[in-house]
Design a protein around this nucleic acid. Structure first.
Length: 580
RNA sequence: GCGCUCUUAGCUCAGCCGGAUAGAGCAACAGCCUUCUAAGCUGUGGGUCGGGCGUUCGAAUCGCCCAGAGCGCGCCA
């Protein structure tokens, strides 16, 4: 495996810095902000000038003088206050493309320090259908999972089902309220359970007594009431299979389907630990832990509620212990709505107080909410949240409308067309959700999820489909790939962008930020589209040019496919369109 | 009340560990299909980066103040 172009350039700078006696940490280069002036820039001279108290331009000149001797470098100049601008020789860039095309991992190095990472998706709840709110954790979480795996980490994802809280008692109480007993539970499907939960929710809000009964039943369930456990098992199983279907459609994979209930046994242990260590106290009948106060008020953590039920923070604390002990987690990542950040700060603080995870990094990746036009979390007109399934159907309908009917296109039957519809619609939805940094929320525009022009998933899928088409034609005409030769500005720009794939992947992995990949893939697809229009392949007379371009095009496709894979988006072999 | 986050083009958003001329998409306008898929390409117009003060050779980016918005704050999860 070869070093990427950027890494090679960095090495050149490091050597020069070392020889000149400058601190090597300033020897970094990045793609130029001024493509009209250079391919890469190094701002190290500006940083050094502060420390050395020397003129940045003078420092820059010294570095440039050395770099000028390098045969891979076309030109070096020091501009403005002290930017070092570097232009590379076309041959050097071309060689790099050849090396990248040969490498299965597209020159992306594996991490030197692989970790075991446990991912928690802040689970969906029993009896609630997945809605747009669940979209983000599934889509962002799945992408982060893929990025970390690709980087070489061992990732274990756990859906972490919400199956042990008061909603469970509410449902059981509601069934008894409606049926008199729990005998009919096993006949209820997901729709029925979901409706029961809705009614329970309303009743408990209106009637404090009903709410109290529900809490009591929750505590009894948690304490092992056999009748309740039996009913609960059915409720859970039905919900899990319903949720699984939803997640399958989004292609979100979970290694573990554990839930809050699985942490129950450990909860008692944690409470004992806290008591033994003397950090818990009883207040108003509840067992709580007071947290050290800083300038930020930290409410106490309620381990055991006054009715004997376990608090939800305790569940998360206990789960940390299990993940550290059983799964040997080096890192636990929670991909959960950022509104829960205080909850996680509390949980992490207690975990530390108890010494549960001394060597494990705990991290909450809080994503922003999906908002309506008013800036508040999105609600449909009737005040509810939009069903995830409905959103997917809406996007699919739009795609389907632009696709040919079965039989119109040779080689595609109805099932295959429907498969394409799904890949494109879900690609559009996912990209929409991943294109901006996870922590920023966005205004929910229904139409945005059924848009396929501009900065969208289908735009990238389309670029891939066009390349696939060229590759098929090339194979039919027996056109082979040759060495990459850079002979135009558009080829050059494309190659330089390809060369920066690894650094983008590394950054995305380090920051756990899929939008970096999304942005990269889009920009690459854009550059390819320009190349596609100005650099014909099959109709080019000169064979070496055609072979070089073919190779570049295939490399673009491989990088785009890999990028989409990291985002959890499928790349259709072809994009069909109906006859207008 | 306290805390967290945010305010950039008509709209939706990038950029923020300080750096050169603040970028995309959409919308608008003008072009490009006898040539590898027009879900595409090329070009034009559009911004006192919420306001003020400060740090700095240099601020959308860092600090403070003000205005506006959103979110969160012990027995729901």
């Amino acid at each position: 495996m070869n070093l990427t172009l950027e890494k090679q350039l960095c090495l050149k700078f490091e050597n020069i810095f070392k020889n000149l006696g400058f601190d090597e940490k300033y020897a970094f280069v990045k793609p130029s902000d001024r493509p009209d002036l250079s391919d890469f820039q190094c701002n190290g001279a500006l940083a050094l000038s502060k420390i050395l108290k020397q003129n940045p331009r003078a420092i820059g000149e010294k570095i440039a003088e050395q770099l000028q001797k390098d045969t891979d470098v076309e030109s070096v100049s020091v501009d403005g206050p002290g930017f070092i601008n570097i232009k590379l020789k076309n041959a050097f860039i071309a060689e790099n493309m050849d090396a990248m095309a040969k490498d299965e991992r597209l020159n992306c190095a594996l991490t030197q320090t692989p970790k075991t990472v446990v991912m928690d998706f802040g689970g969906p709840n029993v009896a609630k259908a997945l809605h747009v709110g669940h979209l983000r954790s599934a889509v962002i979480g799945e992408s982060i999972r893929r990025i970390l795996c690709f980087a070489g980490h061992k990732v274990i994802s756990d859906v972490h089902f919400g199956d042990w809280g008061t909603p469970m008692g509410m449902i059981l109480a509601q069934i008894i309220f409606e049926d008199g007993n729990l005998s009919k539970v096993e006949t209820y499907d997901i729709e029925a359970i979901s409706a029961i939960y809705k009614r329970a929710n309303i009743r408990c809000k209106e009637d404090e007594k009903a709410a109290e009964t529900a809490r009591l039943m929750t505590a009894q369930l948690q304490n092992g009431n056999e009748e309740y456990i039996k009913a609960w098992k059915h409720l859970r199983a039905v919900s899990v299979s319903a949720v699984k279907q939803n997640y399958d459609e989004l292609n979100a994979n979970f290694d573990l389907w554990l839930g809050e209930s699985d942490a129950h046994k450990m909860c008692g242990t944690i409470v004992e630990m806290a008591q033994k260590q003397g950090i818990s106290e009883v207040d108003d009948g509840a067992t709580i832990i007071r947290l050290p106060q800083t300038n930020k008020p930290m409410p106490p953590v309620i381990l055991v509620k006054s009715d004997g039920g376990f608090g939800y923070q305790l569940t998360d604390i206990a789960t940390i212990k299990m993940r550290v002990d059983d799964l040997k987690a080096d890192e636990i990542i929670y991909v959960v709505d950022k509104r829960q950040s205080l909850h996680f700060e509390q949980v992490f603080e207690v975990a530390q107080m108890l010494g549960l995870a001394p060597k494990t990094e705990l991290k909450h990746i809080g994503f922003g909410t999906v908002n309506g036009r008013d800036g508040k979390p999105f609600k449909t007109r009737d005040g509810g949240v939009m069903n995830l399934k409905d959103l997917i159907e809406l996007s699919k309908d739009k795609v389907r409308a632009s696709m040919p009917e079965a039989g119109e296109v040779e080689g595609y039957n109805a099932k295959e067309i429907e498969e394409l519809v799904s890949q494109i619609a879900i690609g559009a939805i996912k990209f929409q959700d991943l294109k901006n940094p996870a922590q920023s929320g966005y205004v929910f525009e229904l139409d945005d999820f059924a848009k396929f022009d501009g900065k969208t998933g289908p735009y990238i899928q389309y670029a891939i489909a066009r390349i696939n088409s060229i590759l098929r034609k090339a194979a039919a005409n027996k056109l082979l790939e040759g060495r990459v030769i850079i002979s135009s500005e558009d080829e050059r720009n494309l190659a330089l962008k390809l060369a920066s794939f690894e650094s983008n992947v590394l950054r995305a992995a380090a920051l756990k930020e899929p939008s970096i990949i999304a942005d990269y893939a889009y920009t690459l697809a854009q550059l390819f589209s320009t190349f596609y229009n100005t650099c014909p392949i099959m109709s080019t007379e000169d064979k070496t040019t055609a072979q070089s371009r073919l190779k570049l095009a295939r490399l673009v496709r491989d990088v785009l496919k890999t990028a989409l894979k990291l985002l959890g988006i499928e790349a259709p072999e072809a994009m069909l369109k109906s006859k207008d």
